[in-house]
Simulated scan of single mutants.
Amino acid sequence: MQVHTRHTPAFGVARVILGPGEAVQAPGESMVASSFGLTEVAGGRRSPSVFTAPAEGGWLDLAPSVAGDVYALEFDGRTGWCVARHAVFARPASVRADSWPGLRTMFGAEGTSQGFLEHYSGTGPLVLACAGPVDQFHLAAGELISVHPGHVLAYPDTVQCRLRAVDPSAQQSIRTGAGLMLDFAGPGTLLVQARKSR
Rank of each mutant, 00 (worst) to 15 (best):
Y155Q: 13
A165H: 05
L128E: 07
T158D: 04
G132I: 01
G108H: 03
E40L: 07
F51H: 10
A141Y: 03
C130H: 07
S99Y: 10
M1D: 07
M1K: 02
H138K: 04
L153C: 07
T8K: 09
R96N: 06
S49R: 01
E143Y: 10
T112N: 15
R85I: 00
G102W: 03
T158M: 03
S169A: 11
A194E: 13
D183Y: 08
G43M: 08
E56L: 02
D135G: 01
R15P: 00
T8H: 11
E56F: 00
D167F: 10
R164D: 13
A90Q: 10
S113M: 14
P125C: 05
V166P: 00
E22G: 04
R175E: 14
D167C: 13
V66R: 14
M1Y: 06
R195T: 10
L73D: 06
A141R: 15
L163N: 05
R45I: 11
W100L: 06
A72T: 05
A53P: 07
V16M: 01
S146P: 04
D183E: 15
E118C: 00
L60E: 01
G58L: 04
A165Q: 11
V3M: 12
G68L: 02
G19V: 07
G21Q: 04
R104V: 11
T189W: 01
S35M: 11
P54A: 03
A67R: 11
L18Q: 02
G124Q: 02
L60P: 09
V16L: 06
L180C: 09
G58P: 12
